[in-house]
Design a protein around this nucleic acid. Sequence first.
DNA 1: ATTACTGCAAAAGATTTGCACTAGG
DNA 2: CCTAGTGCAAATCTTTTGCAGTAAT
Lengths: 146, 146
Amino acid sequence: MNRLTIGLKQAGLRLTPQRVAICKVLAESKDHPSAMMIYHQLLPQFPTLSLATVYKTLHVLKSMGLVHALGDAGDGAEHFDADLTPHVNLVCTKCHRVVDFDEDRIHEIQRAVAERSGYEIQGARIVYYGLCPDCRSGNGTVREQV
Amino acid sequence: MNRLTIGLKQAGLRLTPQRVAICKVLAESKDHPSAMMIYHQLLPQFPTLSLATVYKTLHVLKSMGLVHALGDAGDGAEHFDADLTPHVNLVCTKCHRVVDFDEDRIHEIQRAVAERSGYEIQGARIVYYGLCPDCRSGNGTVREQV
DNA sequence: ATTACTGCAAAAGATTTGCACTAGG
DNA sequence: CCTAGTGCAAATCTTTTGCAGTAAT
């Protein structure tokens, strides 16, 4: 039982094994998975799982605000994040690795943006692109497309 | 002649009327247009313009680093920004409009990220998603895919 | 003259939808 | 029970690609 399954239950939605598993992947993964990544991760456990079910569940979670859609990560697919706290992603333009980065001031920025713009902020995608230390020094290896 | 056409010319690429017009729309528009928006905006002027040409030109501009791709604004389409200076984009998840937002502190954040992460920062995409004031109050109208 | 660019049409991918069947509450 | 959810297949939508003709340099 994590935040996502609790959210579904509280909304009166059904906790099917598929949904529970999708929520678990989202809550425990650090990779900001796409629908396809979730599908392939669960296929061994749910051989009849349908990609449509994954999409439908993601749609429910997203529209309830339980996960954030981060947008395309360069592979043409939407990526999802169950960590709703504002944080920075660093993308290396050479080795394509993505890491999280904590920066306290982005909380202040979000507050300032909300206040001055009048927007009701639902999420953020804060991505810096550049060369990671390994790639700067020539030690980087390009990560293969899974 | 704007920054985009100059960039194409300096790279030895051809300045066709279609490309010049696409660059003009990108450089002058405050809308962060998608491929489809650019296409429809130019159709009266170039009745035989192909959407494929718009996509191909956007690909060239993006891969040369002359424009930034902002990602999906909730309408399923990629939006582009010719303003490369660090700034915040606000995306309304209901009406799909994208606006710029000035926030001086993001310059400091960028410096801090560069310093603490060891990355050589090349660019940033800082997008907040939420409901704009009009959509919060129920006055919003969903922007048509022109 | 070259050859990069355009425009069309077809293809490729990601996501959505319709529907009969299944199973959670 | 009852109806929301699943899984399949087909549809849809954005973006990419192949190719023959066109035009920029």
